Deep mutational scan, measured.
Amino acid sequence: MSIQHFRVALIPFFAAFCLPVFAHPETLVKVKDAEDQLGARVGYIELDLNSGKILESFRPEERFPMMSTFKVLLCGAVLSRVDAGQEQLGRRIHYSQNDLVEYSPVTEKHLTDGMTVRELCSAAITMSDNTAANLLLTTIGGPKELTAFLHNMGDHVTRLDRWEPELNEAIPNDERDTTMPAAMATTLRKLLTGELLTLASRQQLIDWMEADKVAGPLLRSALPAGWFIADKSGAGERGSRGIIAALGPDGKPSRIVVIYTTGSQATMDERNRQIAEIGASLIKHW
């Protein structure tokens, strides 16, 4: 067993022997301040990774656009098919120029040779490549099948209805392509620590998230040296922004954090800054 596999296998073990965790309302004060600064709703939840206990939450059962955070769930569904012998990570998928959609920095470079399922998941999570996500959605049967996968996990809230990039439209009061912070946090925890996926697939999923290259201005910008984070960000229309993450000190994750916002007129930089400040408060009061 590799060191990384050992780390993920012992996530519940280490967490069980940690000192009790206590909620700190100071972080919620910052979440509410972010709402004021952005002029928009902000949803927040913080779960203990081992027990699933909610440590703090704000608007945990209000719907927010998922945006690209759905790509972690998508690759979880792909990995479940791999575990069941219905898919192979090494299978190569070929596609054409007509398949390319807006923001496809990886797939646009491989029109000639195609990409493997493993490479597509890596591109979808680490670079948020939209064509990679659409190609992977095709392998599982489309958005409705991802929703069905989530329902089978016990998540009857999260739903995907459309493809990239239309799913980022974020129309107010439109339930399409949305989740709730509580539902997303619980589902992410199941994917990373539950028995739904094999140990190898859980490790692969967290490795992809740990290698995320496009979430630097968010929670990662607030992390002290030595902290662990595996995350996936999302951005959408109407001032929408979000991030889902597993993080913790001492090089291992111990909490799940989900943050979503929508309806702001603020710039992307300002949305990023507010999420980073929430992260800084979380870490300060850990």
Rank of each mutant, 00 (worst) to 15 (best):
R81L: 09
I45S: 06
S281W: 07
F149R: 07
A148H: 13
S96Q: 13
T139D: 11
K284V: 10
T147G: 09
W163Q: 09
L219Y: 03
F6C: 10
G90N: 13
G141Q: 07
A235V: 05
I229W: 02
Y95E: 01
L218R: 02
Q204S: 10
P25Y: 08
L111W: 09
T126E: 11
G279R: 01
R41P: 10
G114E: 04
M115G: 02
L19W: 15
D83I: 03
G194F: 09
T186D: 14
P60F: 09
L191K: 01
Q274W: 15
T267R: 12
N173V: 10
H24F: 10
F6N: 09
L89G: 06
A235G: 11
H110E: 07
A230H: 01
N173W: 15
M127A: 08
A182G: 13
D129K: 00
G239Q: 02
Q86C: 11
F228T: 07
F13Q: 05
K213Q: 14
D207L: 12
V117P: 04
D33S: 14
S104F: 02
R81D: 05
L135A: 06
P249M: 08
I45A: 12
L247V: 11
S221V: 11
H151C: 10
E175L: 14
F13K: 04
F13Y: 10
T126N: 06
H94G: 10
T147K: 08
M67L: 09
P181N: 01
S254K: 14
E145N: 15
L136V: 08
S201D: 02
D212F: 02
E56N: 11
Q204D: 09
T126V: 10
A215P: 05
M180N: 13
L167E: 03
I243L: 10
Y95N: 01
L218T: 04
P105I: 07
I11D: 02
Q88W: 12
V8N: 15
A215M: 03
G142C: 04
K109Q: 14
P181V: 07
T27E: 03
V214R: 06
A34E: 03
S254A: 15
L49D: 02
M67T: 10
E270N: 09
R162N: 10
T267E: 11
A183I: 09
N272M: 03
A84L: 10
V117M: 10
N134V: 04
R176I: 05
Y260A: 02
F70G: 07
A84N: 15
N173D: 14
I45D: 02
L196A: 15
F70S: 08
A183D: 07
R118S: 15
M184A: 07
L191F: 12
T178S: 12
S80K: 14
I54D: 06
H156T: 13
D212N: 08
N152K: 13
Y44I: 08
L135G: 02
Q4Y: 14
G43T: 01
L135K: 05
I243R: 00
P172V: 12
F14K: 02
T112G: 15
R41Q: 10
L223E: 02
M66S: 04
T27S: 07
D250Y: 12
A133Q: 00
G248V: 01
A245G: 09
T267Y: 07
G141Y: 05
S122I: 14
E108L: 09
I140T: 06
L73N: 05
L55F: 10
P12D: 07
E166Q: 14
Q97F: 15
H5I: 06
S51L: 05
D161N: 08
I229K: 02
P143L: 04
D36I: 15
E56S: 11
I206S: 12
Q203E: 15
E210C: 12
W163C: 11
P25W: 10
V214Q: 07
I125Q: 02
L137K: 01
R159E: 06
K53Q: 12
Y103E: 03
L38W: 06
R41H: 15
H285V: 09
E108D: 11
T138A: 15
T27A: 06
P249A: 08
P165F: 05
I244S: 03
G239E: 01
R162F: 03
F149K: 07
K252G: 10
L120S: 03
C75D: 02
S281R: 12
D174C: 06
A15V: 14
V42L: 13
I3V: 08
T187H: 05
R118C: 13
Q97E: 15
S264G: 10
Q86K: 13
L196N: 15
S2D: 07
P25V: 12
K232C: 01
E175D: 14
V8K: 15
L218I: 05
G114N: 05
S51V: 06
M180C: 14
N134S: 04
Y103D: 04
L219A: 03
T147L: 07
K252L: 10
R189P: 02
L137S: 05
L55A: 06
G194W: 08
G39Y: 10
S2N: 14
L196Y: 15
Q37E: 14
V8D: 09
S128G: 02
S80V: 11
P60C: 12
L79R: 01
W227Q: 00
V21M: 05
K252P: 05
T198R: 09
P249D: 07
L49N: 04
H5V: 08
E62R: 06
L136S: 02
G90K: 14
W286D: 02
S221H: 12
R59C: 04
V157A: 13
R176H: 10
D269E: 15
A40H: 04
S80G: 11
H285E: 10
H5C: 09
V21Q: 05
I244D: 00
A222L: 07
G154P: 04
E277I: 13
L89T: 06
S128Q: 00
N168F: 03
E46Q: 10
E35A: 07
G242W: 00
I140A: 07
P12W: 12
A15W: 15
I259T: 03
